[in-house]
Nucleic acid binder design. Structure first.
Length: 358
DNA sequence: AATCCGGGGGG
DNA sequence: CCCCCAGGATT
């Protein structure tokens, strides 16, 4: 693809003028030059809005000021700090990368685009962001903001969630990149997408690109960018049973191959469809030979919507007269204070806060 | 190429 | 409440 030189010049100069005004968002990672802190912020901000990621960035940089500090941390502590942010594989990969840098690279962050891109949890977007922000390397970022700005400005209607679309947007972004200051250019285009060229109701009257914007001229901002994905949402039914005995609660750690990997939960009986307490008692719980029958107390229900799943949760409490090891020994009996050191999915954090964390 | 992985914000 | 958002890994 090609872009007319006049359009490229217009895009760069208008974006630059807009950004050097008072228009950039003030966030703690802006202008940061420490590659560790830049990397940390970019991992946290993947699939995450700045205001949601902000408190996590503050707590991570405060608790782990250096890559060595993060590398030396215990897994559970890091997951607990990440609790609530979602996409927990980011946390797992972040920790693996910190340890790789600390042990294999002597604590020195890679200085080349190839070296950065090879890190776990770092893909094309994050590699371009770190390369430009930390080292001024000429790599254009392509994130959700860039898809929006470029599809509207250039009139690109190729779905961005396809191989062809990703390639087309990456090519366009690279052609438009102002290599004399790739850090400022990358920051500016994302700020424009976040504050002016927004998904709904873009502020075109305040946009520095308005006079040559394809979508603005054709009144097509609501139609761009184009997505092809049609998400199928699977419904699941989680019956959580808090097994209690002598001030302790049975807690398990979720394994690989499903949502919320490495996070914790009480005893879980998943069913094909919604079941009431009598069915749960007869068909599910009594099948587990290690748990003897006791009164099951209904403790309410809640729903958690994920991108591909809708989780219907029902909570129960069961006071036991002994301490069985449900599901073999893949869990542990913990005091309430010990729960506060572990990471749980948001739906369980809410329940614990309202029911067990006095 | 298609699918999965959280949780927050806006209308 | 429902709809939208969107990098990277995996298969």
């Amino acid at each position: 693809m090609t872009i007319a030189p006049g359009i490229i010049k217009f895009f760069r100069t208008r974006l630059h003028s807009w950004h050097t005004g008072h228009n950039s968002r003030q966030l703690p990672w802006k202008g940061e030059k420490d590659p560790y802190r830049i990397w940390l912020s970019e991992i946290i901000l993947q699939q995450t809005r700045a205001l949601q990621g902000l408190p996590y960035y503050e707590s991570f940089t405060g608790t782990y000021p250096t890559v060595q500090a993060l590398a030396a941390a215990a897994d559970e502590d890091v997951f607990r700090l990440w609790q609530g942010l979602g996409y927990y594989n980011r946390c797992k990969n972040m920790l693996a990368t910190a340890r790789y840098i600390a042990t294999e690279l002597g604590g020195h962050f890679p200085r080349t685009h190839e070296g950065i891109l090879a890190l776990k949890g770092v893909g094309p977007y994050t590699a371009a962001a770190i390369s430009s922000f930390a080292y001024g390397l000429p790599h254009a970022v392509v994130d959700g903001n860039v898809y929006r700005v470029l599809s509207r400005f250039l009139g690109i209607d190729t779905p961005f969630d396809t191989t062809a679309g990703k390639h087309q947007f990456a090519t366009a972004a690279q052609l438009l990149l102002d290599e004399t200051d790739s850090a400022a250019h990358n920051q500016a285009i994302m700020d424009l997408g976040a504050t002016i060229c927004t998904p709904a109701a873009p502020r075109c009257a305040d946009c520095p690109l308005h006079s040559k914007c394809f979508a603005a001229a054709k009144d097509m901002t609501a139609l761009l960018p184009v997505r092809s994905k049609k998400i199928v949402v699977k419904e699941r039914f989680f019956n959580y049973i808090f097994l209690l005995h002598d001030g302790k609660v049975w807690i398990e750690k979720r394994g690989a191959g499903d949502i919320w990997e490495s996070l914790h939960q009480p005893y879980l009986a998943e069913t094909e469809k919604a079941v009431d307490v009598s069915v749960l008692r007869q068909d599910v719980l009594f099948d587990n030979k290690s748990i003897r029958p006791h009164e099951l107390t209904d403790a309410g229900m809640a729903k958690q919507r994920l991108t591909h799943q809708l989780i219907h949760c029902r909570f129960y409490i069961m006071h036991l007269t002994d301490m069985p090891m449900p599901n073999g020994t893949a869990g542990m009996w913990l005091s309430i204070s010990e729960l506060k050191k572990l990471a749980f999915p948001k739906i369980l954090v809410s329940f614990l806060r309202n029911n067990l964390y006095f």
